[in-house]
Nucleic acid binder design. Structure first.
Lengths: 210, 210
DNA sequence: TTAGAAAAGGTGCAAGTGCAACTTGTATAT
DNA sequence: ATATACAAGTTGCACTTGCACCTTTTCTAA
């Protein structure tokens, strides 16, 4: 993943920090990250660790909206809708850099070259994010489980050009990503296996029709 | 909608055009926009008119991926997945400004203030886009039609704070947006009416439970 | 090393949905 | 004024899916 600080020297990063009035906060595993940001317009960058943006449903269930790894960018204007029923939870010890959105968008910044490099990096990171969202939408638009699975396979196959897809997460997580019932997904995977469309071994799915 | 040229004078816009080596292309109604861009890395801006990004399914059906109005920004790195089975169709006579992505990301641009203003505008436009995608995903993640409808109502209600939602498109388009079958949607809307959750008059949906 | 938790895998059944095939309503152009 | 096209609205039916509830396997912490 592209770092937002790509192309910047240590000294420039420090200048950037003071220009933007950033703060670094540290959170330990399972702690909620910045419960206060829900009311503020900020951009956060994961400097170290791993966290998840969770949506809290009225019934208490929570859904993973986004995984935040090192160098991930998130914030009220990027990853989050206007709703307030979400939490960001550190899944490991996690360091977060916080930038005030208004300070980021301040026109005076534009005279500093190190800022512009940083800003261009943010732009590229966010573009990747949009692509990922579009992929997910393309899958979720499909009405049937089989079609969703095949669309997912199609996208992953186009990315790697290989007929083997190695799931980067559990089958349970795959069901959540595709927004379908887990056991119904297993049923459909079984059908696809029976019809010789795919083979499954651990976290590897082999496409036999390619 | 925020213009990418917001805060720029005519003379600065002209400088920007030459800096980025832009081209303006004109398309008439129902013409395909830039069939060649599928292989190129570009960013397009709708200067005038109205167009749609369509996904062409293997069965010939096409799905509206995105509506492009005046000032909309689109491009291979923004709105589009890696797949090549899409078309952008002008629904009216439409003028499109095309920027080469590599020229946009060129570090030398950053020394020009007018470029940085333009770039910051792009950043904000794209952030809005992500928010919209997140909203849609939140709806599509719901497993049942009723839940999708209620989530849609919830989001629109939070935006306007009013109990009346005026559909900006037809009910047919709403069904497409929610990725559900149109007649199944009408059936569920009827149930919601019968249970006194909502009232419908023309394109106005009134939320009675708020 | 063992108990407990969580994921993988499976099944029956009721509920929900997509689809086809209508009717009705409403624009738009000739 | 009338034909044409398209959106709105409805219904029956078959198929799909979610859900509850299992068992088995794998992982993890004491």
């Amino acid at each position: 993943m592209l770092s937002p600080f790509n192309g910047l020297k240590k000294s420039q990063i420090n200048k950037l920090y003071s220009l933007l009035g950033t703060h670094i906060y540290k959170f330990h595993k399972n702690q909620e990250i910045l419960p206060t940001i829900k009311n503020k317009n900020i951009i956060g960058i994961i400097l170290e660790g791993y966290a998840q943006i969770l949506n809290i449903e009225y019934n208490g269930n929570d859904i993973v909206i986004e995984n935040l790894y090192k160098n991930s960018v998130f914030g009220s204007n990027i990853s989050l809708t206007n709703s307030e029923n979400y939490q960001i939870i550190a899944k490991e010890n996690t360091d977060v850099l916080v930038i005030d959105y208004d300070k980021l968008i301040n026109p005076n910044n534009l005279t500093h070259n190190y800022f512009n490099i940083f800003f261009r990096n943010l732009f590229e990171i966010i573009n990747v994010k949009i692509k990922e969202k579009n992929e997910r939408i393309k899958i979720l638009e499909k009405k049937q489980i089989r079609e969703k699975l095949l669309e997912y396979f199609e996208i992953e196959h186009k990315k790697s050009r290989f007929n083997n897809i190695y799931l980067p997460f559990s089958f349970k997580d795959l069901a959540d990503y595709l927004a379908i019932n887990r056991s119904a997904m297993f049923r459909e995977l079984k059908h696809l296996k029976e019809e010789q469309f795919i083979e499954i071994k651990d976290n590897r799915i082999t496409l036999l029709y390619k």
